[in-house]
Design a protein around this nucleic acid. Structure first.
Length: 422
DNA sequence: TCTGGGGTCCTAGGACCC
DNA sequence: TCTGGGGTCCTAGGACCC
């Protein structure tokens, strides 16, 4: 019998912050998104105070202050490095690992299926905790959807003590009949409200829905979901990283930008970063989209959404080409007299660099590739944007807010914690 | 006057995820 | 003053082809 596990870190970003700062343990903690905009991770204490996922920090500021909630800016370098450590701790406990997100992985546990999988999962949790201090929960089921659901149950219901195994029919029925349909993986707000119209409120009721009706209501996606709830796999644990289709570098500004020069500086930086990302994945792009827009939350203000899509021919991973295209796009879409609050550069039509179609008049590709390699090396060693092209500009006229970012505890030598000797 | 029956490709937009 | 930054998949509809 197929056994799929899902290991998920509890309050991952908060747990990472706590790993290196014990003053955060036992107190309510919130980690804010880029720009310190929204709450994207909350400790259990913060959840108990009613802080919800995605709450705008500025709207709940009073409540946070009143209860002494500590707010940390997000520190993705730290979280990425912690993920790497967690994955190595998991390694011995699964035959296949599919990294689903920064804090979750699907595991193929089928080869261990004749053992007590709950004990096996607990062994894994102990190893992760010992190596990284990060607490986790594990869900087990015959399909990914059920493993996800088991994980949520393990988190929510103390009866499971951190590990829920839904391979047993009776336990599965018990859990599904009490599980809100809106919390099922793949059921969002829109689908949940349509289901409510049919009187479907629990995962158990969704499982029992007619397949045809499911398809009519929510396309093949919902139909597959119903199958998975019945224990019929629609998706397997997949180790190979899928070929990426697009990538984006976008940011909100700390304060609105109204002049072309400042916006250009920001977009130039995004284009350079996008080039770095492309090269680090060994890809080239065939299309670049640049956009910038005003604050869409302020309906009473003048609104403008500027965007241009440019074809990159030949396909490229050259930051200077991306930069030039992005600048052309901004110039074409620019309109004076607006307060822009967000901009970005997106790349599409991604292809592995070695499969890049060659064109007749490419210029000195080799030389430019060496330049890009040198650029990546300098910036990798001395910090991002140490070396930049003159056209990117030397001063940034924009900043993002990050008022309380933790140090790069594990990835920057100067920030490594020191244990005082005698 | 009559106004088929297939295809493909592309884009925009919706819905969902973490 | 102040509302993240990434991604994926699916469908409908238009343009175009024979």
């Amino acid at each position: 019998m197929t056994a799929i596990g899902l290991i998920d870190c509890n309050n991952f970003y908060v747990s990472c912050e706590r790993a290196f700062d014990s003053s955060l343990i036992g107190v309510p903690v919130v980690v804010a998104s880029n720009n310190d905009g929204c709450a994207i991770a909350r400790s259990n204490e913060a959840k108990a105070l009613g802080v919800r996922m995605g709450d705008p920090i500025h709207l709940i500021r009073d409540r946070l202050d009143r209860h002494g909630v500590v707010v940390r800016s997000s520190n993705y370098t730290l979280y990425g490095d912690m993920q790497r450590r967690i994955l190595s701790a998991i390694d011995d406990f699964a035959s296949e690992v599919e990294i689903y997100s920064i804090d979750e992985s699907f595991l193929d546990l089928t080869p261990f299926g004749d053992r007590d999988l709950v004990a096996h999962a607990n062994g894994m949790r102990t190893q992760v905790r010992r190596w990284t201090t990060i607490p986790t929960c594990v869900g087990i089921g015959p399909t990914k959807t059920l493993a996800k659901l088991a994980n949520a149950a393990a988190k929510k219901n103390p009866i499971f003590d951190g590990v829920a195994d839904l391979r047993d029919d009776a336990i599965r029925r018990f859990v599904l009949d009490r599980f809100p349909v809106g919390d099922v993986w793949g059921v969002g707000r829109a689908t949940a409200s349509k289901l409510a119209g049919l009187g479907i409120a629990t995962a158990g009721q969704l499982r029992d829905m007619q397949m045809r009706q499911a398809r009519g209501l929510g396309t093949v996606v919902l139909e597959r979901l119903v199958a998975e709830l019945r224990g019929v796999a629609a998706s397997a644990v997949d180790v190979v990283e899928p070929q990426r289709k697009g990538m984006a570098v976008t940011r909100s500004f700390g304060s609105p930008v109204g002049d072309l020069e400042t916006l250009m500086g920001a977009v130039a930086q995004f284009a350079m970063r996008a080039g770095e990302k492309l090269r680090s994945h060994g890809l080239v792009a065939g299309q670049l989209t640049v956009f910038f827009h005003t604050n869409q939350h302020k309906r009473d203000r003048p609104q403008h959404h500027g965007s241009r899509r440019l074809t990159l021919h030949p396909m490229t991973d050259d930051s200077l080409e991306l930069l030039a295209a992005a600048r052309r796009g901004v110039e074409a879409a620019w309109r004076d007299g607006f307060a822009y609050t967000k901009a970005g550069v997106m790349l599409d039509d991604l292809v592995a660099a070695e499969q890049r179609p060659r064109t007749l008049f490419e210029g000195d590709v080799e030389r430019r590739a060496r330049l890009m390699t040198a650029l990546d090396e300098v910036n990798g060693r001395f910090g991002r944007f140490t070396a930049v092209p003159g056209t990117q500009g030397f001063r940034w006229g924009w900043t993002a807010r990050a008022e309380s970012r933790s140090p790069a505890w594990t990835t920057r030598l100067a920030d490594v914690p020191v244990v005082a000797a005698g």
